[in-house]
Amino acid sequence: MSEQWLLRVEQLEKHFGPGCPVCRQLTGPTTGRSRCPRCGTVWACVDVNLQLHAGEVLGIVGESGSGKSTLLQMIYLALRPDSGHIWYRESDGQLRDLTTLNRYEARLFQNTHLGIVYQRPELGLNMRFSVGGNVAEKLLLAEWRHFGRIRVRTSELMNKTELLPERIDDEPTTFSGGMLQRVQIARALASHPTILLLDEVTSGLDVSVQARVLDLLRRIQWTDRITMLLVSHDLGVVRQLARRTIVMKNGHIVEAGLTDQILEDPQHPYTQLLVSSAL
């Protein structure tokens, strides 16, 4: 068992809107609402606590609007939380609260420690650059300054993600959906991130393509022991990849546990509904 947590989220909170005195009572899983009916404020994440351990895959499930993508964006440092902490344990054991980083520090941390794969490739890739350029960007940000070596590393990453290195200079628009997800994965892995964030990566793909992408992620996890945070509304995807799973509803975590336990012995009424509604 690997020692300590790598990332620890403490009482993280994010809302969109002005807020009012009764907001909290009128939203949350018991009310079945995220949006306050009085002032219209959306409470995307409320009192979210979780720990991510080195080398594990943690699943986050919940229906659309449950706050799981907002949570992921905050951990990716792309969205600033209203309150709470995101602690990260550096390789030297030092703890850093990522919510206190300024823009510049946050971007640097993002470039060196985090990788992300989005459901929609346009969000993760620059469609005007070549596929190789998109992967190389991460290397360039990590101060790789030798064109030849960048090309070699980019080809390696394409091989690893089962893309043909011959297509390094092709435009992303000539790639299929499953291939674009693999380009995103190659790009995310380029700078050896410690945490890979996956936001509905297989949603919208054909079932067989979905299986290939999942198998790729699984093998990367086995060989590189990379820590992953997997957001999905598809319980099957989470079952295949994540050992532990968190269930979110209306901005709150309603249940957390071993993935098979969540799926076969769900405790919370909402989780029981979610599991029983799965195909």
Binding site: V207, S208, A211, R212, L214, D215, W222, T223, R239
Partner: peptide
């Protein structure tokens, strides 16, 4: 319960991977 399109050999090796 396995991932489709993964070979029998890889499936049986999973715990070792």
């Amino acid at each position: 319960r396995v991932l489709p399109r993964v070979s029998a050999l890889d499936t049986i090796c999973e715990p070792l991977y």
